[in-house]
């Protein structure tokens, strides 16, 4: 790790861990977390503006409540960074990416999933474009965070507690999409392990992560090291650059600012 990054990491920790506050009191950290309705929001504009439509505003929370991470990021093939997939309308119309579900035919929860893109459409059908090609507040979106998340368990910062929501049966995640997913053998999760960080150890649960992600979502793309302890990464890289744990925990999974969710010795 570069000395400057070490220094910045120490600075971040000094800023974020108030001496007087108990570790599980998140009131000091909440100002760093974006509003829950915008947490994990992705704006896609590879081709939209050029095609004369607004960029796509994608809400992670809406899709996260229905599907596992693996289904979208492995089976369907969405990249883990915004705009890296370079989705085109032609891709969607061929039944890939958004079009894998949004084909106008597939039924989910007893409802037809609206079709994503079309070459020819009437003015009325064109309104459908705005369900994705619009700002998050647009009327055409049909969902708003407040009513959608009302009955779901929450974390500090009004973020949805996905783990609890699933264990309480409030969300049932689909992990297989007919015609898209391939059949996998049952998962044999690797052991959990402890990451020693000064006095604030992290217990990493492979089981909790693989159940939604599989293996290839993290290895080797996010965590390339094949020998435990050889890759050193800092809180600066995680929190500010969105690397390592920060790839998911600055976007869709619980926020990195909820320190004690990982650094268990802070709680103890």
């Amino acid at each position: 790790m570069a000395p400057i990054q070490k220094l910045l990491s120490a600075f971040i920790i000094a800023l974020t861990v108030p001496v007087s506050a108990s570790a599980a009191d998140y009131s000091h950290y909440l100002r760093h977390i974006p509003p829950a309705e915008n947490f994990g929001q992705v704006v896609l504009d590879n081709y939209s503006h050029k095609a004369g439509v607004l960029p796509v505003t994608f809400d992670h929370w809406l899709h996260r409540a229905k599907f596992t991470c693996r289904l979208c990021h492995i089976d369907i093939g969405f990249a883990m960074k915004a705009e890296m997939t370079e989705i085109s309308a032609a891709d969607n119309m061929s039944g890939y990416y958004c079009g894998a579900c949004h084909d106008g035919k597939r039924v989910f929860d007893g409802r037809n999933i609206f079709g994503s893109c079309a070459e020819n459409y009437t003015e009325d059908e064109g309104k459908r474009c705005a369900r994705c090609h619009s700002s998050a507040e647009a009327e055409e979106r049909k969902y708003d965070y407040k009513s959608f998340s009302e009955k779901l368990p929450k974390l500090p910062g009004n973020l949805i507690d996905w783990e609890k929501a699933e264990s309480e049966g409030k969300v049932k995640l689909t992990d297989f999409l007919e015609g898209v997913s391939y059949k996998r053998e049952p998962l044999k999760a690797q052991d959990d392990f402890t990451i020693k960080i000064r006095s604030w150890d992290v217990i990493f649960s492979h089981r909790k992560h693989t159940v939604w992600n599989g293996c290839e979502l993290c290895h080797p793309m996010i965590f390339p090291s094949t020998k435990r302890g050889t890759t050193k990464y800092s809180m600066f890289q995680i929190m500010m650059k969105g690397e390592y744990c920060g790839v998911c925990h600055t976007s869709v999974a619980f926020s990195v600012w909820l320190c004690a969710k990982c650094h268990i010795t802070l709680v103890e």
Binding site: Y182, K183, L187, K188, C215
Partner: peptide, 11 residues
């Protein structure tokens, strides 16, 4: 499908 089916058990 066949070649990727084993990813869960790669280890």
């Amino acid at each position: 499908s066949s070649v990727c089916a084993k990813t869960q058990n790669a280890m």
